[in-house]
């Protein structure tokens, strides 16, 4: 009986690690390859060097694309975080019975395929003379990120003890001040996590940008265009940078959020 159980748990943990390797290995194998200095991606690289990183940094097209993506992600991330936080407060405090319906509506873009949303934005832009508009792209990215913001901040908001803010009100603080003093600090970690998430939703988004922009390229569009033609190892360098930056930023945000959640739970 016991032996059977240990065999079972050994198999189970072997399965777990096998699947983790399957999910993680293909991603991280790019990193050593990106340090090769041959003309092609080779495994294992014959010689190591920073050739493809230099190629990335010294190419104005790559740099412009990176900068554009960064700007769009930053602005749409801020918009999504602010509108999302406001929506959470409205949903939790003021909307009463219609709360569930509004939550469904605001979070529903998560399950609609991006290609369908992109198609809608594309037609919307054509009808309203907004083709190529970066403002529209920023708005669309904020909309796509909004559900995640509402879910992340909503989860944190529900753990905050509302009596603290009420106490502040009783003690004479106005509604805004009471919120800023009593609730806002506890909401901050979730807000940062939500912003980081929203930032990367935009930074990684390809299809809406591809349908909407003309003449300018975001970073995913540049990667995409590069993969259609020849697979130059520059993409490996860009991908490696993205992998490291994404992992560090998202892990940092997640740890921050978990710590805050645990603190609130204690």
């Amino acid at each position: 009986m016991d032996r059977q159980r240990t065999l079972g748990s050994v198999l189970l943990s072997a399965w777990f690690w096998l699947i983790v390797v399957f999910m993680v290995f293909p991603i991280f194998v790019i990193i050593p390859l990106s340090f090769g200095s041959g003309d092609l991606l080779q495994f294992p690289p014959q010689q190591y060097g920073l050739r493809w990183y230099h190629a990335y940094i010294n190419d104005p097209l790559w740099m412009q694309a990176t900068w554009l993506s960064f700007k769009i992600a930053l602005i749409s991330g801020v918009i999504a975080t602010i509108t999302g936080t406001m929506a959470v407060i409205a949903l939790e405090r003021h909307l009463g019975r219609s709360r569930v319906a509004f939550t469904y509506l605001i979070t529903s873009p998560i399950i609609v395929p991006h290609i369908f949303i992109a198609l809608g934005i594309f037609i919307f832009a054509l009808r309203n003379g907004l083709s190529g508009s970066q403002m529209l792209l920023i708005g669309a990215h904020a909309m796509v990120a909004l559900p995640f913001v509402v879910l992340i901040i909503g989860a944190s908001y529900r753990q905050i003890d509302p009596t603290i803010e009420r106490a502040a009100r009783v003690l004479g603080a106005g509604p805004m001040r009471a919120f800023m003093v009593a609730t806002f600090p506890s909401l901050m970690p979730a807000g940062v996590a939500a912003f980081v998430f929203a930032f990367f939703v935009s930074f990684d988004e390809l299809i809406i940008a591809q349908f909407l922009l003309k003449g300018t390229e975001t970073l995913p569009m540049r990667i995409w265009a590069n993969l259609q033609l020849d697979i130059s190892p520059t993409v490996a360098a860009v991908a490696s940078l993205l992998i490291v930056v994404t992992t560090v930023a998202m892990a940092g945000a997640e740890i921050l959020r978990r710590r805050a959640t645990q603190k609130l739970a204690d």
Binding site: I106, G139, M143
Partner: peptide, 8 residues
């Protein structure tokens, strides 16, 4: 407070 999100 929900209006900006609803606008998007």
């Amino acid at each position: 407070l929900i209006w900006p999100a609803m606008l998007l």
